[in-house]
């Protein structure tokens, strides 16, 4: 939604707490306790109208329910009735209390220990490819066809677009790209401004 107009008020409140209602924290803790892994792709499957209507933790919760049903450990009728199917086998807890004490401080390792020749180097001019994936993607619309400069090579990470679609990961270099505000936004650009964003190699072409 970067660059869109008319999406309401920011609703800024100084030093606002991260959680407003106890259920938000419980929903968030349930996501962690279930250890479902990345829910972003499930969040992005929520239809645009529902997405904008829902609050942040409602999206997480919705994604958790659909992910958990998809993996087969609960069924839709169980969610609707709130009771376990009496014929279902009792599962073993994914997360013990001891694990729970340590889990929030465990840093995930998404960087891939793979040697790949980078297609781009610091200082190269690159252009965002004009692609419109129907899958999940981490390439914001506003970077398409825009020219920027490689500021840093971030290392090798799997392309998120193929996650959940293909079993084969697509490891590749991720680059920090700098775009001037003028390039991205034309005459409406903020004065003396620039934008930095990390982009996977598949999102870019030489400029």
């Amino acid at each position: 939604m970067g660059g869109m107009h008319g999406l309401g008020e920011i609703g800024y409140r100084e030093n606002e707490p991260g959680f407003h209602e106890p259920w938000e924290l419980r929903a968030y803790a349930l996501v962690q306790a279930m250890g479902t892994g990345g829910l972003r792709s499930h969040i992005e499957r929520i239809s645009a109208a529902d997405y904008l209507r829902m609050g942040y933790y409602e999206r997480w919760f919705t994604a958790l329910v659909s992910r958990t049903i998809e993996t087969g450990v609960i069924t839709l009728s169980e969610v609707e009735s709130g009771r376990a199917d009496p014929t279902s086998v009792k599962a073993t807890t994914a997360l013990t209390p001891a694990d729970a004490r340590e889990l929030p401080f465990r840093t995930p390792q998404a960087e891939q220990d793979i040697e790949l020749t980078p297609q781009f180097h610091v200082g190269d001019r690159v252009r965002g490819r004009n692609i419109h994936p129907t899958t999940y993607t981490r390439m914001p619309r506003y970077t398409r066809s825009k020219m920027g400069v490689v500021e840093r090579d971030r290392g090798v990470f799997n392309l998120p677009d193929s996650e959940g679609v293909s079993a084969d990961p697509k490891p590749q270099h991720v680059y920090l790209i700098r775009y001037t505000a003028d390039e991205l936004w034309g005459y409406e650009a903020s004065t003396n401004s620039s934008l930095y964003i990390d982009m996977w190699e598949d999102y870019l072409e030489p400029a």
Binding site: R26, I74, R83, T92, L95
Partner: peptide, 19 residues
Amino acid sequence: VKALESLLIEKGLVDPVAL
């Protein structure tokens, strides 16, 4: 959220103490 929490605990998928 409460209903899902109860269901996951009933099914043994979530340990209430861990939560």
